[in-house]
Nucleic acid binder design. Structure first.
Lengths: 151, 151
DNA sequence: CTAAGTGCAAATAGTTTGCATAGCG
DNA sequence: CGCTATGCAAACTATTTGCACTTAG
């Protein structure tokens, strides 16, 4: 976790009367250092490598908090679990998801974003956020590569 | 349900050894005649207006079937439930969702789709499907209109 | 001190499944 | 008839919550 995130978080916590606890710090540190698109359970497992006594409930509560203060975004890639990704200090981006091996690639494209705004305006909407996910086969899986689960 | 959907369904059912039952027909008819983006529970309620004895399990099973044969698409708009929308004979489209009143507007934009393909190609992906959702305020809610739930 | 945070287990919500029975083909 | 579909209730999965206890400020 870099300074910037730390500051944003301290500020937010102060402003909302939130305490900085051992568990919270551990969860947040782990979340930002692992990176990627973590499900709560995955994150919980990582956290428990450091402190076996942290409960899932706390991880859920902490991630909800991170979401509310804008440091993490909750995502739903259709596998039935909510995944979180770091948000602070990052550009908005979208996702390419391989339906075979589960690889997730991030991308950003300004022209598409501009067009989205155009479409929204046409319908009288003011867009505050969006998500775009492209599902298909990654380079490797098109060539008959093995899926993660069969590796 | 129009002829076309009926045919697609009959064909699919025949091909997969599926039976046409009273419950299935009722559920499918209801689904296509109500339209929109129905959650399983909403659909179940509509169905029960006709036949109070149909179980949720059957609605879940039937909608999964419709999804598999391509007549319906499952969507996740972040409210924790899976919603289905009619798919057969319709152009692909995306969604504008009002975060205040819950209104969902459909739109399609070929240029955006083309750009998506371009981006995917750049990353070595072959896209088979995608979803794009724009969240924000609709015209009415920007003017301080009332949300559905407070109406 | 004392309000806020935590762990645990129980509670929810949405969805799936096992099994005995009903019904299409 | 034989196999698939249905209803019901129990099982499951992901997530939330009530409560007694701990802890940061």
């Amino acid at each position: 976790m870099n300074r910037n995130m730390d500051e944003v978080l301290q500020h937010y916590m102060a402003q909302h009367g939130l305490k900085s606890t051992r568990q919270r710090s551990l969860i947040i540190d782990t979340f930002f250092s692992v990176g990627g698109h973590l499900s709560v359970e995955e994150l919980w497992n990582k956290v428990r490598e450091q402190d076996i006594k942290v409960s899932v409930a706390t991880v859920y509560r902490t991630m909800k908090l991170l979401g509310e203060c804008g440091l993490a975004h909750a995502r739903n890639f259709g596998d039935g679990q909510t995944r979180y990704e770091a948000a602070a200090g990052r550009h908005h981006h979208d996702h390419l998801i391989c339906t075979h091996c589960g690889t997730i690639v991030e991308f950003e494209d300004d022209r598409i974003e501009q067009m989205q705004d155009g479409v929204a305006r046409k319908h009288g909407f003011t867009v505050t956020s969006h998500k775009m996910e492209l599902y298909g086969l990654c380079r490797n899986c098109q060539r008959g590569g093995k899926a993660k689960s069969e590796a």
